[in-house]
């Protein structure tokens, strides 16, 4: 670990003033950043500890839920409003990592965690994310866990978060702040696709701090779930995951649907194409399959991950079938 200085921020203003300095990074639970620092992939000069900030979950009058960025993952998953109104979010968080890590990890840190690409993690390998322009050893290497959607010739890594997949499905809004002001942004816009600059993973401005996540009111989210497919039964990253909300009308049609995919792209992948194909259509397997196929029309396999296309298709259909069955 490269030497650094440590500062604990007392409030958001203090944090963003410290955070704007070159070489400063915000520190949440440390479950990803400390690991990356130990690997010297991250070498901040200053760590600004923001775990003391915004640690509340507020149920607001308009039916939305405001989750402070420093709230621990466990606290989100166990919150009654989350469990009852946004079960997909509780399920996604509980599918991730381990009990210990969920107790440490913050919401903000979870959103900003970095890829688990094997070549990103090994500084003996070429990686455009670590060293822009260096090349990518994953494209022709072990890429079983890599992207099938939205990848570029420079980067085929995936975003590892489970929580973000649910947030994407729920239309969560990210509240941001830096020394010059505050703004909001839909979570689905926060993360970038790699294109030619895989080292730029989000649209965050320098020094910008995630202060909260807002879950808009979404009554149909009571019927939502998350399914994660992985190599062991627990404590491993997703090969593919699906977050879904399904609102079925009494006549068996899709009134509303929210669908997002994990493990398939450089960002949590909101399946807008599939959603559009489903709205107003019957809740049956054929429609689910057609929607999944529409979403995956541009999916491109690499050496090892071609199975993910079929796996994603099947998992989408199974999750929608499950929700449709519950609704029936």
């Amino acid at each position: 670990m490269t030497p650094f200085s440590y500062a604990r921020a007392g409030d958001t203003t203090a944090a963003t003033h410290l955070g704007v300095a070159a070489g400063a990074k915000y520190l949440g639970g440390g479950t990803n950043l400390v690991d990356l620092m130990r690997e010297t992939i991250e070498r901040p000069d200053t760590l600004v500890d923001v775990t003391g900030l915004s640690r509340t979950i507020e149920e607001r009058g308009d039916g939305s839920l405001m989750i402070g960025a420093a709230v621990r993952n466990t606290a989100v998953a166990e919150h009654r409003a989350v469990r009852e109104r946004y079960p997909v979010l509780a399920r996604a968080i509980l599918a991730g990592a381990s009990g210990q890590i969920r107790n440490m990890a913050t919401v903000g840190g979870n959103i900003l965690q970095r890829t688990r690409c094997l070549y990103f993690y090994d500084d003996a390998a070429r990686c455009n994310k670590r060293t822009p322009g260096a090349g990518c050893d994953a494209i022709d290497g072990f890429n079983r866990a890599h992207a099938i959607l939205g990848a570029s010739p420079t980067c085929v890594a995936t975003h590892p978060s489970d929580m973000c997949v649910a947030l994407a499905a729920l239309g969560a809004v990210v509240h941001l702040e830096n020394a010059t002001g505050a703004r909001t942004m839909p979570l689905v816009d926060l993360h970038r696709l790699p294109a030619g600059r895989p080292e730029v993973e989000t649209l965050l401005e320098p020094g910008e701090l995630i202060t909260a996540i807002e879950l808009p009111q979404l009554p149909c989210a009571v019927r939502s779930t998350y399914r994660k497919v992985r190599d062991r039964a627990s404590y491993s990253f997703a090969l593919v995951s699906v977050a879904a909300v399904l609102d079925r009308s009494d006549d068996g049609m899709v009134r509303d649907v929210r669908l997002a995919l994990g493990g398939v792209a450089h960002k949590p992948w909101r399946a807008f194409t599939a959603e559009a194909a489903l709205r107003g259509r019957p809740t049956n397997e054929a429609c689910f399959r057609a929607a999944a196929e529409a979403e995956l029309a541009d999916a491109a396999p690499l050496r090892d991950n071609g199975f993910k296309i079929e796996l994603t298709r099947r998992t989408i259909v199974a999750v929608l079938n499950e929700l449709a069955g519950e609704a029936a």
Partner: peptide, 14 residues
Amino acid sequence: MNASLAEYHVPVHL
């Protein structure tokens, strides 16, 4: 390439 217990998958309790 998977010189880690996160990526070398020994069975977990579940």
